[in-house]
Design a protein around this nucleic acid. Structure first.
Lengths: 355, 355
DNA sequence: CAATGCGCTGGAACCGGTTTCATCGAGTGA
DNA sequence: TCACTCGATGAAACCGGTTCCAGCGCATTG
């Protein structure tokens, strides 16, 4: 080993500062082998002498070395990482999707990386989303799952799957739930209980899911031969506050509804608030159905009847698809629908026959 | 432009496949400039002719180019990304911490990247955590916030902050809440209401936070001159199920407690379950206090009195610290405490004087 | 008119890994 | 003994960017 090498390297690595931590070259130097050999040991290649491998492994342990994710992915197109691009990591829906994703990725020994950007204007969001996909992929992740409400109309050269996208026809595979069908079944249940005046509070109508749920409401009325009464529908945005507002308006009309179909559990929560404020008892004076089946719904008094859209299952399905895609199996179908199911609890009651 | 270049590049980039998407070299070639110039435009350097910059920007737009996060971070030590290392991204506590972090990072125009690993054995977890910190840093992120219950005793050369760490003395700055003080104040409240037999359900006792809360319980008793009765304490693990079990055991004792201090809101939820099962009414027959102030606590019947530990604020504080660290401002104090506050709702009642 | 300065640009080194290719030494069969 | 094979290893190219440095053309100045 030349004398000049330590002289050059020590001052710059030990004394001054080590901004990048310990690198593969440090390991190679200490172990007295080349970087190639260290790399081979790291990746478990066959043709390394056992005792050499042992030495290298010991040095790696001593120095606390870990290979840089970025540098690795740069050359060899295979990090074992799946990326998820979201807006709000803490939102219950997204949180549950991520949980579902993680269960699948963890089982197949992939790591999970969720990316949330600094808040931007609404129109910049779509471009940003595409940017992130490009930024992460080809370098940091093997495939990406997009869970933002914004469109996904651009094309990419690497695996991407969308969960609950805004557009119906995306360029890449999408996982959605049967929004229309879910509301349809909930409505049939209410109609079977004898309800005829059923109020509806919409979701964020710029989102496709909200539109489809509204479709389900109207289709159910048509199916039952009831007219669509616009005064029984108010616009919401999936939030509790809007649910409260909307329900209060609906229930203070001259001929108020006997049941309210809410577009989300949060919205249903707002309906509970309004009923409480107006002195109405659920389900005696008012039947309520939500949508999502979030954990809190079961805790309400009375427990909320709701449409389960199996959010975790959507995430799990998206993860399965992306992993198949990553491993080269092409995806046959573009649109994957996860069926919804009505969860009957105690927030609805059959209407008395005197009406 | 030589004829051979397009001939060489087209088949390999357009026809066959483009695994890496469009690179900076593609942009340079199409725009007729060097990669250096494209890089300068990307980073908004001054000394580029306006018309050249405009051309490059147009080409970037046309090709939908986005620079690779990994490659960029490799050379220039500055991605505007903060990393968060967690176990379960969907856990309410962690979810709220992330929300708090994101509010600060977004305001200062940093992106956020949460990393969750494939599930590993408990002992492998600590090593894994250190691995991830090394993997991400120096390449992908500028600084890292660790939000895992596991220790954090290793040393690093780059900015790391821990939230609610298991160990009291970590190598790097930590953000914790005043667990002992929080229970202490809750207990004073119960004692002021006249309760003398107060049950306690612990958290996961391998976690420091649980130990400190237990300390608060005993200190409050000592302060009031009451003896510590071991039969009034049962071990839990922060979950609803254990809360149910523990409360059921406590309440079926010969001389049951009139109030139960639960180590978490989830645990308190289990206490509600047990009370319901045993036909006890809250707060008439039993007073309950939780810890955390999760959103669901306010939805319970009756609304849960609990100790707010300002989880979001903990995240925000951690983010502030890490950003200061990243920007070179050294951190004066090691341990940052976020004070707790008692949130009084309707799950407690003054005990009748006949006892 | 030559020298200097300046705005702009391209070439090349570099970041930390992986991968291909070449080399070296030992064992083996003719 | 020599050519050949084969396992183990090191040197160098490469991934996609950034940044340092040199060079070019042109205007200014002594």
């Amino acid at each position: 080993m030349p004398v000049s090498l330590p002289k050059m390297s020590h001052p710059s690595r030990r004394m001054d500062e080590s901004p990048a931590g310990v690198t593969i070259r440090d390991v190679a130097r200490v172990a007295g082998v080349s970087v190639s050999t260290v790399s081979r040991v790291l990746n478990g290649k066959e043709d390394v002498a056992p005792e050499t491998a042992a030495t290298v492994r010991r040095v790696i342990e001593e120095l606390g070395y870990a290979s840089s994710l970025a540098a690795r992915g740069l050359r060899s197109r295979a990090t074992r990482v799946i990326g998820v691009i979201v807006q709000d990591m803490w939102h219950p829906f997204i949180s549950m999707v991520i949980k579902g994703i993680n269960e699948v990725t963890a089982a197949r020994e992939y790591d999970l990386l969720a990316y949330a950007g600094a808040r931007r204007s609404a129109d910049a969001q779509a471009r940003w989303e595409q940017q992130q996909v490009s930024q992460l992929n080809g370098t940091v992740t093997d495939g990406i799952i997009v869970v933002t409400p914004h469109a996904a109309t651009y094309r990419t050269s690497f695996p991407v799957v969308a969960v609950d996208p805004n557009q119906a026809n995306t360029e890449f595979p999408a996982v959605i739930s049967t929004n229309r069908q879910g509301v349809l079944e909930a409505m049939r249940y209410l109609l079977a209980l004898g309800h005829r005046r059923i109020g509806f509070i919409t979701g964020r109508m710029d989102l496709r899911s909200a539109v489809r749920r509204f479709d389900g409401y109207r289709d159910a009325l048509a199916e039952a031969g009831l007219p669509f009464d616009p005064s029984l529908t108010v616009e919401g945005d999936y939030t509790r506050a809007k649910g409260f507002e909307g329900a209060q308006w609906l229930l203070s009309q001259p001929d108020p509804p006997t049941a309210i179909m809410a577009s989300s559990d949060d919205t249903a929560l707002g309906v509970y608030d309004a009923a409480d404020r107006l002195g109405l008892r659920i389900p005696d004076d008012l039947s309520v159905i939500g949508f999502d089946n979030t954990p809190t719904g079961a805790l309400l008094h009375p427990p909320l009847t709701t449409v389960d859209q199996f959010i975790e299952k959507m995430g799990a399905l998206a993860a399965t698809i992306i992993l198949d895609l990553v491993q080269g199996h092409p995806c046959e179908t573009r649109l994957h629908k996860v069926p919804t199911r009505l969860v009957v609890r105690q927030s609805c009651r059959a209407i008395s026959s005197d009406r």
